[in-house]
Deep mutational scan, measured.
Amino acid sequence: EADPRLIESLSQMLSMGFSDEGGWLTRLLQTKNYDIGAALDTIQY
């Protein structure tokens, strides 16, 4: 079963217009401990 923190973070990022095609966003959020800010910083640079 998916981590509730992942579901919450992923749904927030999907609502911002990101896609999780191929699961890349799920993996990114997992490596950033479900921190949306850290994930966005990684995507920006």
Rank of each mutant, 00 (worst) to 15 (best):
E1A: 12
E1S: 13
E1R: 10
E1W: 12
E1N: 12
E1T: 13
E1D: 13
A2N: 13
A2G: 11
D3I: 06
D3F: 06
D3Q: 05
D3R: 06
D3Y: 06
D3K: 05
D3L: 06
P4N: 10
P4K: 12
P4I: 11
P4W: 12
P4V: 10
P4R: 11
P4Y: 12
R5P: 04
R5T: 05
R5G: 06
R5V: 06
R5Y: 07
R5F: 07
R5L: 09
L6T: 03
L6I: 06
L6N: 02
L6M: 08
I7K: 12
I7G: 09
I7R: 12
E8Y: 14
E8M: 12
E8A: 14
E8D: 11
E8L: 12
E8I: 12
E8S: 12
E8F: 13
E8G: 08
S9Q: 05
S9K: 06
S9A: 14
S9G: 09
S9H: 04
S9T: 11
L10E: 00
L10V: 06
L10N: 00
L10A: 01
L10C: 03
S11L: 12
S11P: 02
S11T: 10
S11F: 14
Q12L: 13
Q12E: 10
Q12Y: 14
Q12W: 11
Q12S: 10
Q12K: 15
Q12H: 10
Q12F: 15
Q12G: 05
Q12A: 14
Q12M: 14
Q12D: 05
M13F: 07
M13I: 06
M13C: 05
M13D: 00
M13K: 00
L14H: 07
L14G: 05
L14C: 07
L14F: 14
S15P: 03
S15Y: 08
S15L: 11
S15I: 11
S15E: 12
S15V: 10
S15K: 14
S15G: 13
M16Y: 09
M16C: 06
M16Q: 04
M16I: 06
M16S: 03
G17A: 02
G17H: 02
G17N: 03
G17R: 01
G17S: 03
G17I: 03
G17P: 01
G17Q: 01
F18R: 00
F18C: 06
F18M: 05
F18H: 04
F18P: 00
S19H: 12
S19D: 13
S19C: 10
S19P: 04
S19G: 09
S19N: 14
S19L: 10
S19T: 14
S19F: 08
D20I: 03
D20F: 03
D20H: 01
D20S: 02
D20K: 02
E21T: 11
E21P: 05
E21N: 11
E21W: 08
E21L: 09
E21V: 12
G22R: 07
G22S: 09
G22T: 08
G22K: 07
G23H: 08
G23S: 05
G23C: 07
G23M: 07
G23Y: 07
W24C: 07
W24V: 05
W24H: 05
W24K: 04
W24E: 04
W24F: 07
W24L: 05
W24M: 05
W24G: 03
L25Y: 00
L25S: 00
L25Q: 00
L25D: 00
T26Q: 06
T26S: 12
T26A: 08
T26L: 05
T26R: 08
T26W: 04
R27I: 09
R27A: 10
R27K: 11
R27E: 08
R27H: 09
R27D: 06
R27M: 09
L28V: 06
L28D: 00
L28P: 01
L28M: 04
L29T: 00
L29H: 01
L29I: 05
L29A: 00
L29Y: 01
L29V: 02
Q30S: 09
Q30E: 12
Q30Y: 10
Q30V: 15
Q30W: 08
Q30R: 13
T31C: 15
T31P: 01
T31Q: 15
T31G: 11
T31F: 14
T31S: 15
T31R: 15
T31L: 15
K32D: 02
K32L: 14
K32M: 13
K32Y: 10
K32W: 09
K32V: 15
K32H: 12
N33C: 10
N33K: 09
N33R: 08
N33H: 09
N33D: 09
N33L: 09
N33G: 11
N33V: 07
Y34M: 05
Y34A: 03
Y34G: 05
Y34S: 03
Y34H: 04
Y34F: 10
Y34E: 01
Y34D: 00
Y34K: 02
D35V: 06
D35G: 03
D35E: 08
D35K: 04
D35L: 05
D35I: 06
I36T: 06
I36G: 01
I36H: 02
I36S: 03
G37P: 11
G37A: 14
G37W: 15
G37F: 14
G37H: 12
G37D: 14
G37Q: 15
A38H: 07
A38T: 07
A38D: 07
A38W: 07
A38E: 10
A38C: 07
A38V: 08
A38G: 06
A39H: 01
A39L: 06
A39N: 01
A39P: 02
A39Q: 01
A39D: 01
L40Q: 03
L40S: 03
L40F: 06
L40I: 11
L40P: 00
L40D: 02
L40Y: 07
D41W: 12
D41S: 11
D41I: 14
D41V: 13
D41C: 15
T42K: 08
T42E: 15
T42P: 01
T42C: 15
T42N: 08
T42L: 11
T42V: 13
I43E: 01
I43Y: 04
I43K: 01
I43N: 02
I43C: 09
I43M: 07
I43A: 04
Q44L: 15
Q44F: 15
Q44N: 13
Q44H: 14
Q44P: 06
Q44R: 15
Q44V: 11
Q44K: 14
Q44T: 09
Q44M: 14
Y45G: 15
Y45V: 14
Y45F: 13
Y45A: 15
